[in-house]
């Protein structure tokens, strides 16, 4: 039983445990086993999170993801194989972990987070996010704040949020209205690179300018309201050739298929080791939060591995003017 690994910590207070902590193995084991945890995202972080939670003794896990498996996922999303391409990430990931680890129940939800109602979210003790979208994070962050009844703190659902880009990542713990929320720190999120329309239209200099010209200006001109589908190879090919032609016209070098895809899909580099680090940090906090065997992160850890190894752990302060959690 995976839960046994935490047993020594439930038998004795440690030098760093909170004063109120009373060791009790049975109670702690029950708390871990009966906790209902929602994992949002079954991608690079999500696969790791499902594995980590199951091997920490959690037995009632739900996972929600609207995506299907793509070939480019396989360099890190280790619960998926070639034969799974096209299937629901949430479903395949759940099945794999349940086959591997006995006594764990993982319930997949193959849909958007917005498709679920308040009743669905209220059933969880904790939400862990492994997302690559700022919008989805803002949505769930806002949802958890609205679900909090200020007169009843048992309605508080903590959120642990992980994110990665290349060799870098961050994990953080959010206690709605008690600690800084995702919205409080929105200004820390790097915005996507955008190019002024006049540069794209009139004075292109970089290959990216040519790709954005094809993407933002030529596509709607040629195809009207038809949305561009970056997963359709023939459409991607049109985009690449159109960009290349414009680049040649202006004597600009560097338009490649790979760059075209990177720009139109806003691709973020992703590797398994970074996902492992961040997901492990998130699940370590989850285990401490539910078991109380050691204090939790207060409240933000940044990890950077492109130049040696560097972590910065700090308390991100609440923003009094935060439109989501402030002002109450």
């Amino acid at each position: 039983m995976s839960i046994n690994s935490i047993k020594p910590f439930t038998e004795k207070k440690g030098p760093f445990t909170d004063d109120v902590y009373e060791p009790n193995t049975e109670e702690t084991f029950n708390a871990i086993r009966s906790s209902k945890i929602l994992v949002i995202g079954a991608g690079g972080l999500g696969c790791e999170i499902l594995k980590n939670l199951s091997l920490s003794g959690f037995q009632d896990i739900h996972v929600i993801d609207m995506d299907t498996i793509d070939l480019t996922n396989l360099n890190r999303q280790f619960l998926f194989r070639n034969k799974d391409i096209g299937k629901s990430k949430a479903k395949v990931a759940s099945q794999f972990v349940m086959n591997r680890i006995p006594n764990v129940q993982i319930t997949p939800h193959f849909c958007r987070i917005q498709d679920k109602d308040d009743l669905f979210y209220r059933q969880f003790q904790l939400v862990i996010c492994g997302l690559d979208s700022t919008e989805a994070r803002r949505w769930i962050n806002h949802k958890l704040v609205t679900l909090l009844d200020p007169n009843d703190f048992s309605s508080l659902i903590p959120m642990i949020d992980g994110g990665t880009e290349g060799f870098r990542g961050q994990s953080r713990l959010i206690l709605p209205t008690l600690s800084s929320c995702f919205e409080c720190s929105l200004d820390m999120i790097p915005t996507n690179v955008t190019y002024p329309v006049c540069t794209i239209a009139n004075t292109p200099r970089l290959p990216e300018h040519c790709i954005e010209w094809a993407h933002q200006l030529e596509w709607p001109k040629k195809f009207g309201d038809k949305p561009f589908d970056a997963d359709d190879p023939s459409q991607v090919d049109w985009m690449y050739k159109t960009s290349l032609e414009r680049a040649k016209h202006f004597d600009i070098e560097g338009v490649t298929l790979s760059l075209t895809l990177g720009v139109v899909k806003n691709i973020i580099p992703a590797i398994s080791s970074t996902n492992a680090i961040i997901a492990a940090s998130c699940c370590n906090e989850a285990l401490k939060l539910i078991s109380n065997v050691n204090p939790i992160l207060d409240n933000y850890m940044m990890y950077s591995g492109d130049e040696s190894v560097f972590t910065y752990t700090f308390k991100h302060e609440r923003k009094p003017s935060c439109p989501v959690c402030g002002g109450s």
Binding site: T274, A276, A280
Partner: peptide, 11 residues
């Protein structure tokens, strides 16, 4: 603890 092992394995 699996999480700690996985964290170090990641580094």
């Amino acid at each position: 603890l699996h999480n700690i092992c996985s964290f170090m394995g990641g580094i």
